[in-house]
Design a protein around this nucleic acid. Sequence first.
DNA 1: TGCCATATTATGGCGTACCAAAATCTTGTA
DNA 2: TACAAGATTTTGGTACGCCATAATATGGCA
Lengths: 231, 231
Amino acid sequence: MNDDAHSAAIRVERPAKTLRELALDKVREAIVNGYFRPGDRLVERDLCAQLGVSRTIVREVLRHLESEGLVANLPNKGPIVAHLNHDEAKQIYEIRGALEGMAARLCAEQNNPAIADALDKSLEDIKSSYRDKDMAGVLAHTSSFYQTLFSMVDRHIAWGVVNLLTVRINHLRSMTIKTQNRDVQGPAQMARIVDAIRRGDGEGAYQAAMDHVAGASAIAQAVLSGHERID
Amino acid sequence: MNDDAHSAAIRVERPAKTLRELALDKVREAIVNGYFRPGDRLVERDLCAQLGVSRTIVREVLRHLESEGLVANLPNKGPIVAHLNHDEAKQIYEIRGALEGMAARLCAEQNNPAIADALDKSLEDIKSSYRDKDMAGVLAHTSSFYQTLFSMVDRHIAWGVVNLLTVRINHLRSMTIKTQNRDVQGPAQMARIVDAIRRGDGEGAYQAAMDHVAGASAIAQAVLSGHERID
DNA sequence: TGCCATATTATGGCGTACCAAAATCTTGTA
DNA sequence: TACAAGATTTTGGTACGCCATAATATGGCA
């Protein structure tokens, strides 16, 4: 790990990623950003053609996405893009609340100003992305905010869980951040988290994080109710 | 995170399990109960022979276990059984605490006596297994206790997360329950959870669940420290 | 004898072809 | 028109082959 800065200058290309990982990312991307819609069948041989890889790869990718919960497998009918009903969405937000609240509390208890500073940095990025109407940027920097929250207290497993769940509600996230006032309310709630952390107020940080997720969840529910679904 | 015993009551037979699922369970079992030890290489062609299935299946199974965190893939070396250091174990117990605490609180807030009754039933099974020195039974009924906790408030996603994490610490669980006094202390802590739920005391249920997991975590840490490790 | 360069082997990564069983669509006939 | 028989599609599963790379064995040369 100490030599990567050195060899990074030497190494010309990135040999690392296997074809399978590339394909996995592509398909996950395609599901997350709506190219494949919930309920769509994912026919193995079609995917082979579209991705330009063999069935071996496609099957492994489908298996992987299945275990991530993005793909469901109907017996003898094959894989489809998993649906997300709003009860499940609610549950996912709830879990995120519990884990992000936990991480926020731990950050506050560290009493390390560097944490709040790093979070403030992400928060600035989020606000600036909102100003530029760069919604992809908002999502990315929000993720980065939470990643900081977890990584500052070395909770990479919890971060992994949150990440896993987050991909399943990604389309909801991209809708919630576009709702009225979210550009003001969201950052304000996050600022409360940072403030509590800076004060060393564990309980306050926990509550603030819970509130932020609860807000997102409420909006998501509204969005899901408005958008009546036909599956 | 796949479907389970819901339709099991209706369906008479289950020839439906695909070979792949069978193989997945076998290999997971083999890892969880120590037939394969952490660090062991999982050579694809050897597994084919041992399981009597084709390489395609084995590869899909390995991919699945990889995404569950039971198997790690070393670039250019292939899959091995993942190690678990004690920091990661601690993180896993911590997450379980947060989620089981959440579920316990929700159960308490239901004010439904049937929940506490069902939990008491599992608790009796656990005590009885302890009396019979049936450690596999203790584990199974403890799982069932927590499954009840989650399913009574319809939190199957959180249950899935807990389950996913639990398999990674299964060998620790089987050691913690064998330690001195755990046969008394464990059930006593769980009884406190049930009591709080019966009283409708959400905060008390949350705390009791956290305490139970914290106890298990502390024992696990002791076990891990005692047992010298070579990774 | 000691060491370096070269085979060999083990293994994962990837692709293709094939078969059986189940679901679904077509079609032909009563 | 209705329905049964076949054709097609698609998954589940198998077998085999090829290539690249890393580790190991081997052999030749100073």
